[in-house]
Design a protein around this nucleic acid. Structure first.
Length: 291
DNA sequence: AACCAGCACAACCGCAGGGCT
DNA sequence: GAGCCCTGCGGTTGTGCTGGT
């Protein structure tokens, strides 16, 4: 939402009416351009923090909390707007699998993205997929679909995107690194045609119910090349210091068409999905998922 | 053209934790 | 230790937008 065209909450008009009766009443609802400018000016004078004090000093009839939220989610210069890139989506899926709904922690690894934005993305896009499949986003079945299908597709998309079309997604402090080093995919990086939706659907619907845990661990070491990923993604995965990246390795191995493709089939039966339903879902999932 | 349903996202709310007195 | 205040987090709500009918 642009600050120049604020939404008018139904309740807000009432509040503004109240304000006309009482100048001390706190404002709620969408911010106006004048309020934004006032807040920016006040922060430029006094800096961030001490939000309640800042709200009073600025003359804004807003709570400190509201000022903080407006600044961090909208006005702060390094806040990035627009659609999340495939790399950002990939990172969100991976980090959420590890940390759950720790939005602020996840946001720390996505330069310029706010916890609010990531939370909204998860609720509107990811949970929508879970609803389509009638499964819980926290279930192991959904996790498997993410790492066995969506993450490989995102990796494919990243690798298929010409460097010139890749979004500039690094924060200012990373600017010196953003030649990006995007190179042609090598070794374990996907061959785009290696996996199709129907192949994945077929794997998921296979008759075998073998455990995947031992096989996928042996595959993790096979992928160590993140050259095609943006710096902030590489920063996260490269040194392994975060203890992350296992899922990405798994997904990448899946894209590479490894014969030991680690998909458990058990959950399909556990959730009583009809094979035709699931295969149909998978065949048009790109549209649903908006890759 | 009008209506409707679903989506996207800004903003609010309640709560918890930490610091200070 | 108790009480207060501030900050930050995660969940939820509300409204404009958009696409379908």
């Amino acid at each position: 939402m642009s600050s120049s065209s604020p939404k008018s909450f139904g309740s807000c008009s009432e509040i503004e009416d109240d304000n006309s009766n009482n100048g001390n009443e706190l404002r709620r609802g969408p911010w106006t351009l004048e309020e934004d400018n006032l807040l920016i000016h006040s922060i430029s004078l006094h800096g961030e923090g001490r939000w309640n004090l800042l709200a009073k000093r600025s003359g804004l009839r807003r709570t400190g909390k509201s000022c903080r939220l407006r600044w961090l989610n909208y006005l702060k210069p390094d806040v990035k707007r627009g659609n999340l890139s495939a790399q950002e989506q990939l990172l969100i899926l991976d980090l959420h699998s590890k940390w759950g709904n720790r939005w602020s922690k996840i946001a720390q690894h996505l330069p310029g993205r706010t916890d609010n934005e990531i939370k909204n993305y998860w609720r509107t896009r990811v949970q929508k997929q879970a609803r389509h499949l009638n499964i819980d986003t926290n279930s192991e079945a959904f996790q498997q679909i993410i790492r066995s299908y969506w993450m490989p597709r995102l990796i494919q998309k990243i690798n298929q995107t010409p460097p010139s079309e890749l979004p500039i997604t690094s924060p200012p402090e990373m600017a010196s690194q953003t030649s990006f080093g995007f190179e042609a995919p090598t070794t374990a990086v996907a061959q785009p045609s290696a996996v199709t939706p129907l192949q994945i659907g077929g794997d998921l619907m296979g008759s075998s119910c073998s455990s995947s845990s031992s096989s996928h661990i042996t595959q993790i070491s096979s992928f160590q090349n993140y050259e095609n990923f943006a710096p902030f993604v590489k920063d996260y995965y490269h040194d392994g210091g975060h203890g992350g990246g296992e899922m990405l390795n798994w997904a990448t191995t899946a894209v590479a068409g490894d014969s030991g493709y680690p998909v458990s089939h058990c959950h399909v039966a556990e959730n009583n999905w009809m094979e035709s339903d699931f295969t149909g879902y998978m065949s048009n999932v790109d549209e649903l998922w908006q890759f």
